[in-house]
Amino acid sequence: MNINLTMIGQAIAFFIFVVFCMKYVWPPIMAALQERQKKIADGLAASDRAARDLELAQEKSAQELREAKQQAAGLIEQANKRAAQIVEASKDDARKEGQKLIEQAKAEIEQERNQARDALRAEIATIAVAGAEKILETSVDASKHNEMLEKLAAEL
């Protein structure tokens, strides 16, 4: 229990140790701790953000899918409409074409009939004369009876 210089020696050692601890031990450890805390906080924030981003992306993709579906439905509808239109139009065309053909055919028929009639008309005189000759057993002077024959032909 002697009080002596040891006390002062201990105080000096204490002072040196505390200064060393304050300068070279405490700050690096504290810095590492704080940096890790920050890192963890940042990591948590980043994961939060990522989760939010994911949610947003999912929402967006769902919306886009919906839009795409709508668009596709619109397109299909349009195509259907268009197809119907085309069918209708082609039906129309066909009908018109048919009508035209029919008319053409009719015209041709008419024409042919007229030709046939003309040809008949041209030959009727001869046939009539021949017929009359047969009936009369005499020749008929065509020039004398021309007027009558022409009248007959016109009646046809």
């Binding site: 601890c21 940096e35 890790r36 890192k39």
Partner: peptide, 16 residues
């Protein structure tokens, strides 16, 4: 101080 200084020197904010 030796032990703590050694740890302080190598202190990393990654996995300790």
């Amino acid at each position: 101080l030796f032990i703590f200084r050694m740890a302080a020197k190598r202190a990393t904010s990654d996995q300790p």
